[in-house]
């Protein structure tokens, strides 16, 4: 075959043609892509900006030690009292209950997935269900806890919210813990078995400790997400204007406080909502940065 019958490629100049349709198309597409990036950044930057401006306005230690102030209170500095201490404790309590349930549950499940059932059909299907579970709307977890706990105990409670948040945290913990366990080198297991250790001695004594950084990462991300979740909390823990340490009683949480106070016309409550939102976002930020730091140090 000869190359004369294909006039398109041979014998052409190598020069760039500035005016060609292709150059124009490339430039336009690059422009559009960058425009997309900027359009995406504007609301996100605006969100962080307003959060910082409004959140810091009232930030101080009293936020964590005092009860919410009465509404209508003027917002000048000498009246700058009141906080969300009860909601802060409530968030610690509900997230604590959720962690106490989901961490052992999730870690044992991932031991099964990585140590006993790795690469089996069973593990594949459990992983599939875990992924699907992580896509279930958080409010459905709330509905589940409402049916399972609120209706049976006939009371809104921190416990009900804890159960809802536990289900919510579980997929994150299972996924990260399984990954962490699977990345523990085979040689470590063989070394322990070679010394005569049994299955549970090897796993609990050698494999699990080696995987701890990864597991902590998952737990932190799960906790940060659970602390910010509102939908499963507002009709399980409900709210409480006073201090409460009883897990079987209605409890305030930071996220529910943001929701409740944002919708009121009272300036001082709105400010509290912004401060609580800032605390929640700071929690997410810290958890993400720490987890990134831990995984990077490991490599």
């Amino acid at each position: 075959m000869t190359s004369q019958d294909f006039s398109l490629s041979s014998g052409r100049s190598l020069k760039r043609s500035q005016m060609s349709f292709k150059t124009l198309f490339s430039n336009v597409m690059t422009g559009i892509a960058f425009a997309c990036a900027i359009i995406a950044l504007i609301p996100l930057v605006a969100l962080l900006y307003y959060l910082l401006i409004n959140g810091f306005a009232r930030l101080g230690p009293q936020l964590f030690t005092q009860l919410p102030p009465p509404p209508y209170q003027p917002t000048s500095p000498q009246f700058n009292t009141g906080g969300f201490g009860n909601a802060f404790i409530g968030t610690l309590m509900t997230v604590g209950i959720a962690s106490a349930i989901s961490i052992p549950f999730g870690v044992f499940a991932s031991i099964f997935l990585s140590e006993f059932a790795r690469d089996t059909k069973l593990a594949d299907s459990i992983n599939f269900f875990t992924n699907v579970l992580s896509g279930v709307p958080s409010i459905v977890m709330g509905v589940f806890a409402y049916g399972a706990i609120v209706l049976t105990t006939k009371s809104y409670s921190a416990m009900a919210a804890g159960v809802a948040l536990a289900v919510l945290m579980l997929p994150t913990i299972v996924r990260t813990a399984t990954e962490a366990l699977e990345s523990v080198p085979k040689e470590l297991r063989q070394a322990a078995f070679g010394l005569g250790a049994t299955n549970y001695q090897t796993i609990l004594g050698v494999v699990l400790p080696a995987a701890i950084p990864g597991i902590i990462t998952g737990v932190m991300l799960g906790v940060a997400r659970a602390a910010g979740e509102t939908a499963p909390v507002i009709f399980t823990a409900l709210f409480n204007n006073f201090w409460n340490l009883d897990p079987w009683k209605p409890t305030a949480t930071l996220s529910a406080l943001v929701f409740n106070f944002a919708g009121t016309p009272y300036k001082n409550w709105q400010q509290l909502a912004w401060s609580a939102a800032l605390v929640l976002v700071a929690l997410v930020l810290i958890a993400n940065i720490l987890s990134r730091w831990i995984t990077q140090r490991k490599r």
């Binding site: 605006a46 959060l51 997400r225 910010g228 996220s255 943001v258 929640l280 976002v281 997410v284 993400n288």
Partner: peptide
């Protein structure tokens, strides 16, 4: 990293920002 982080911001915070901004 920022994109990943923004996916983790609680929904109620977006709501708060939505109401006031």
């Amino acid at each position: 990293f920022m994109v990943e982080l923004l996916a983790a911001i609680p929904s109620v915070v977006y709501g708060l920002w939505g109401i006031f901004v």
